[in-house]
């Protein structure tokens, strides 16, 4: 089903992730939880070759990068998790010759059917975000499934029906929900925090959004005091004027 479903209809469900770059500490929990679930889940296995050798190479659906951004006082270190963004205009889907890549009409999740993928890798070329990883041994393309085998899974308790990465993230930097619903918690987060698209100029219209690092703390002090005024200019030493103040403060 290589043609993209029409996602412009009002009320169209667009499931995706919102990743808070202001909160992510780069702990890699999401990457490993993803690996752990998915190597036994829908896209199983996520092969690791030469796992104990000199040149291990494995399939991961989520990777956390470390960047430095900005200069001088504004410079920051940013940990940057990267997985499939479940784009609305997903060229990875339209280029697929077999229909193995498809975007689900019901919720917009972009998937690869492991039974029909021929492993031509073209979809990975079409993805600007490097989100697809080819499994050399299985001969098929692997990608984030948005944990489609968790989020609707009747065998899991309701609270656990979330992507493995979201469920694991210790800081709560990952949020899952319906970005098609303007009133959903994730949509509100995106509007409050000015969440943005990666590489909007390429026109893929990612569903996943990134919340940028805050430049200043939203919290106190609102007007940071620059320095404290010293107490009374007693003629004595600092110590004596301090204790004079103590005396006054304690009401002698």
């Amino acid at each position: 089903m290589t043609s993209l479903p029409d996602t412009t209809a009002p009320g169209q469900v667009k499931l995706g992730l919102v990743i808070d770059l202001d909160t992510c500490v780069g702990c890699q929990a999401c990457a490993v939880a993803c690996k752990e679930w998915n190597t036994q889940g829908y896209p199983a296995p996520l092969t690791d070759e030469d796992p104990y050798g000199a040149d291990p190479i494995g399939v991961w659906l989520n990777r956390v990068h470390g960047y430095e951004s900005g200069e001088g006082q504004a410079a920051r270190t940013v940990h940057f998790p990267r997985s499939c963004l479940h784009c609305e205009n997903a060229a990875c889907v339209t280029v697929c010759p077999t229909g193995a890549s498809y975007k689900r009409r019901s919720d917009g999740i972009v998937l690869v059917d492991p039974d029909t993928c021929i492993g031509c890798k073209l979809c990975s070329w079409a993805c600007p975000y490097g989100a697809r990883e080819y499994d050399y041994r299985a001969g098929v393309m692997k990608k984030c499934t948005l944990c489609v085998d968790r989020i609707y899974n009747d065998h899991l308790e309701a609270e656990d029906r979330q992507p493995a990465c979201v469920r694991a993230c210790p800081t709560g930097a990952r949020h899952f929900g319906d970005l098609g619903d303007r009133d959903s918690a994730v949509s509100r987060l995106v509007s409050e925090r000015a969440g943005d698209d990666l590489l909007p100029e390429l026109g893929y219209r990612p569903v996943n959004k990134y919340l940028p690092p805050r430049t200043t703390s939203a919290g106190p002090p609102p007007e940071p005091p620059r320095a404290l005024p010293p107490i009374g200019q007693g003629d004595g030493s600092l110590v004596e004027s301090f204790f004079a103040w103590v005396d006054r403060a304690l009401g002698a």
Partner: peptide, 27 residues
């Protein structure tokens, strides 16, 4: 980590004193 996430969610100010700016210091 969970605690830092909660501070962030409430907008508390976090100051990290550390020769290196990674991980907790990064946020």
């Amino acid at each position: 980590k969970a605690g830092l996430g909660r501070l962030k969610a409430r907008g508390a100010k976090i100051v990290s004193i550390n020769p290196v700016r990674t991980g907790y210091s990064a946020i």
